[in-house]
Simulated scan of single mutants.
Amino acid sequence: MSADTSPLLEVDDLCVEFRTRRGTIRAVNGLSYTLREGETLALLGESGSGKSVAAQAVMGLLDTPPAHITRGAVRLRGEDLLSVPPERHRAVRGTRISMVFQDALTALNPVLTVGDQLSEMFRVHRGTGRKAALARAVALMDRVRIPAAARRVHDYPHQFSGGMRQRVMIAMALALDPEVVIADEPTTALDVTVQAQIMRLLEQLQDETRMGLLLITHDLGVVAEAADRITVMYAGRTVESARAEDLYTRPGHPYTRGLLDSVPRLDRMGKPLVPISGAPPLPSSVPTGCAFHPRCPRAEPRCAGEAPPYQTLSPAGHRSACHFAEEVHRAPVG
């Protein structure tokens, strides 16, 4: 999407732990990725892979126990947000980097009108008067295609449909024209027609503002339509990263291939789906070596004892953390 190749957001070797009475849980373990201006990067993986925790760390929402960021850097245009004072991170949050949280009904305050919640952004961060802030809230609702915005600005969240509530969350994230928007499962629990509308809206707004979009999801269909590049997570780790077209046509990790094989396809009608066996590990008991080895059809003894290094599979930057990445990459899909 973007001609600018300089990183807008860089996450480098991010590690997040939760220290509880039952022990230490490492929810994110060495996550790295870059996001450029005007680009959509998808963070893909099953529930429990650490996607949302990583996003909260980037936003500066994990600054109290039991959460601890033990290692890494989060650089926004070169400024490491993990090394600045908390008040500086708070100043950046919402103004330069913002987040669309999953489940808009619980993310919005049920006892305040939508207009109050949107206009608060302008009153707190811009010092705008109440009347002017409400007018800007109406303009925001118009911007995200909410009909009759001047009237509906006085409604409460429960008076909106799921798709309209998600639009309100997007409006809130875009209120202060941030450079980066993190969308955490923005289409969860929405029907496919509304999903398409929400993703189309995000794409249109991105074209207007040139914002970088980090899309967190487990939905391969949404990723295929929206993403420029994809980072695949498993058990808190990055297992593969590539351009979207490369990852879908020639995956380089058995986990990614398993995700693709488990999706219904028109060219395989009448054939049974091929699910990934087993279940993702609990963050408190991640297997040694390659965390995916208990579920992997290619696993060999070395996979249980030796963590695989990241290998570069193509000049375009396709990378995979698998002992058999080259063989998986060469194998035909489907």
Rank of each mutant, 00 (worst) to 15 (best):
A107L: 09
C290M: 08
L313N: 03
A242P: 13
A183K: 01
V232S: 07
E87W: 15
P186I: 15
G48T: 08
R243L: 15
P287T: 00
T20S: 01
M233I: 07
V92C: 05
E300I: 13
P157V: 07
R243C: 12
V181I: 09
Y234R: 01
R126Y: 12
G50Q: 03
D13C: 08
C322I: 11
L201F: 02
A189S: 13
S161W: 15
P308V: 04
F324C: 10
V328D: 01
Q195V: 00
P110V: 13
N109I: 07
G212H: 05
G94S: 07
L62E: 01
P275C: 08
T95G: 03
D80S: 06
N109D: 08
D246L: 14
V11G: 11
R151F: 09
K271R: 15
S285Q: 14
D116W: 03
E240C: 10
P281C: 04
G305L: 02
L190Q: 10
P186F: 11
G50E: 08
A226H: 11
G252Y: 10
S49I: 06
A244E: 15
R210N: 09
L214H: 00
V263L: 10
A67M: 03
E17R: 14
E240L: 10
P7H: 12
Q311P: 10
S32K: 14
S98I: 02
S49R: 05
R152A: 14
R302S: 02
A27M: 06
G317T: 04
D13L: 06
L82T: 06
Y234V: 00
P281S: 07
T209C: 06
R26M: 03
R75L: 09
G94R: 02
R200L: 10
R88T: 15
T288Q: 08
G72C: 06
P315R: 00
T217G: 00
R268H: 12
P275V: 13
